[in-house]
Design a protein around this nucleic acid. Structure first.
Lengths: 357, 357
DNA sequence: TCAGGGTGAGTTAACGTTAACGCAAAGAGG
DNA sequence: CCTCTTTGCGTTAACGTTAACTCACCCTGA
């Protein structure tokens, strides 16, 4: 493989020192216009591209970010990743993709690898509520930002940047909506208890139960793992109960789509027999064939904000200011909750359906 | 940010030269066991991680691959990316994610960036049929592999590795299936004419038309861009024709889901009024609410094979052997084609639905 | 006893870039 | 005319690693 020309190659050709070439190509002072022109034209001829590795080594920065996610097959992450990738490119950064498959030891391996590769910062969408890996990084003052996740109980937790939706409110909105439509038996498909998103959404659901005078002990909860099959299993379990719920809230859409499958396989109709609400508003939930009522969050924006915030920190803007950003979730009413069966009128449906990115 | 300890730090602490540290940490000969033990224990204490940048600079390899895709929001790509990421991790490589948004000049920018970052090879899922960027790389003997795409008419085309499904056969199977169920007016939503996948699938569709004695001039074709909205638009256009087709074949599932939407919005039912067939078997097409008949290809495997093939080449196995791998597509019959309405029996439905990864 | 080889190191250069420093020549200012 | 500054370079070291080379010492065997 033919390698790129280096500044030394150019220097030899032009008959100057490599420093002079460096000055010419980087608009540094202390070089005459004529030498500069000669160098630039030769460089162009040779299709010179700076060796970013060497630059990184000497400058101590790589203009690269790590993106740590659980699994790219959950459609939430491509949508987030798009916001992240676009913003990173805009700011001149690259992304190294790391999928942990929910394995915290793999997460650690990835972190070690990213650090030894000298990435300037890491974006985590996979953080656990208690995450020793994150704690370690924060202690080392390594630039990072959490997306769609928070960390609790860590003595350093108020020093950790994050961008999240107000998950508790989202959970509240989802279950409030179901209660308002007359449901009293509601099943919640929750997520892994080490995920703040899962915990907070469930908490919001509980809060709605209490606020509307229902007994939170009667809120049925089955734990899923954020993946589709677990939604399927949970739905089937709910529907095999003697006192089966009449509505199901899944704390993410991916499981909700599994639940949808499970409900149909159990011989029930949506929404006539069972109402279903999800969370995330992933793209396919809006399909006419699906029409899943869900909680929307601004995913593209979350990704974009995360990158901008992280890079501000990396490049020393904002100083030590901690940035903990919470975005508003919104209820997106579609067919699966059965609002149309109950004479429920959607307030400003257009406004609700519209989602800027 | 506290930086990692280097071999020189360790050398100073132990009182040896940095070369000795290198020998200790890399199992090189010419070092005594006792020195080795001392060094290793100190290294562990300091949580030593080698600086991969420095290694890459001197070794001339980065153990990093570029992954160039059009847009991660097309669900085909996360499924491919999973196969790629898993295989890369297994082989000790990392992935830099690049989304070109179908922009060939952005593709070029990404390539330049990847090369100046010293990636060892690039995986393209975004190659155009005539792609000067690819030609350039091949001329430079830069390791690359195309996935789900081929390049034509390039004098170097038989030197370019690729992994694809036999797209023409897939297109043939899709349309043959529709013809067998009695459809004579078939609309095809094709893709960008600079994508080999789109061209070959359309070609396969034409071949089926001819082989079954239909007039290929009567095959209705509308060009989409592989994205959902274009599928929607195409379907609506088809259905507004005086001689509207009774079946639609979309050359990818993402557009097919748009078409599904368009068909329903036009007031038609699937499959009673319109049969629909897609291509790719992306995860959500199997949902009970969708049940899209489609052409399956082994996406995870494609990604995995691509990585193994590319790395074989990078690491000098296989020598100069060109690897052009074609996988079998398969017809996956589901509800949307209306087979159940026509008394069509699916041969070995279990075998068809099962897909190993 | 001494050549030959193995052992356990250290020294040095290299990868390609950036940057601190040095230095001669030209120009400016009194 | 002499000093002082500016201009236009070159030299050198550094980033952290790998690897080629060197070298002293000890052991072996004839």
């Amino acid at each position: 493989m033919r390698r790129y020309a280096t500044i030394k190659d150019i220097a030899k050709l032009v008959g100057v020192s490599h420093t002079t070439v460096h000055r010419a190509l980087n608009d540094k002072p202390r070089i005459s216009q004529s030498t500069k022109d000669r160098i630039i034209s030769i460089a162009r001829e040779l299709n010179y591209q700076p060796n970013v590795l060497a630059q990184s080594l000497v400058l101590g920065r790589t203009k690269t970010l790590g993106l740590v996610i659980t699994t790219i097959v959950n459609p939430l992450y491509p949508e987030l990743a798009k916001g992240i990738e676009d913003a990173a490119r805009f700011l001149g950064y690259n992304i190294i993709l790391c999928c942990t498959n929910f394995d915290i030891s793999l997460e650690k391996q990835y972190i070690d690898m990213l650090r030894s590769r000298g990435v300037d910062g890491i974006i985590f969408t996979s953080a656990h509520i208690h995450d020793p890996n994150i704690t370690r990084l924060v202690k080392d003052q390594f630039p990072l930002i959490l997306v769609n996740r928070r960390v609790y109980g860590d003595p350093l937790m108020d020093r950790i940047d994050y961008v999240v939706a107000e998950n508790a409110k989202g959970g509240f909105l989802a279950v409030e909506h179901l209660i308002k439509m007359g449901h009293k038996m509601i099943g919640v498909i929750s997520g892994p208890p080490d995920s703040s998103a899962a915990v907070e959404r469930l908490e919001g659901a509980r809060k709605a139960f209490i606020e509307y005078g229902l007994n939170p002990a009667e809120l049925l909860v089955l734990e899923g793992d954020f993946l589709k099959p677990s939604g399927y299993e949970a739905a089937r379990k709910f529907l095999s109960l003697r006192d089966a719920p009449s509505a199901i809230f899944s704390v993410n859409d991916y499981m909700a789509l599994g639940a949808l499958e499970g409900i149909l396989d159990s011989g029930f109709r949506i929404p006539e027999d069972i109402a279903l609400v999800g969370f995330n508003d992933i793209e396919f939930t809006s399909l006419k064939a699906i029409e899943l009522t869900t909680i929307g969050q601004k995913k593209y924006e979350m990704g974009s904000i995360a990158v901008h915030t992280l890079i501000d920190k990396i490049e020393g803007r904002d100083g030590d200011k901690v940035r903990q950003i919470t975005l508003e979730p919104e209820l997106i009413v579609r067919r699966s909750c059965g609002y149309q069966l109950r004479g429920y009128t959607v307030p400003h449906p257009e406004a609700l359906l519209e989602q800027e990115i």
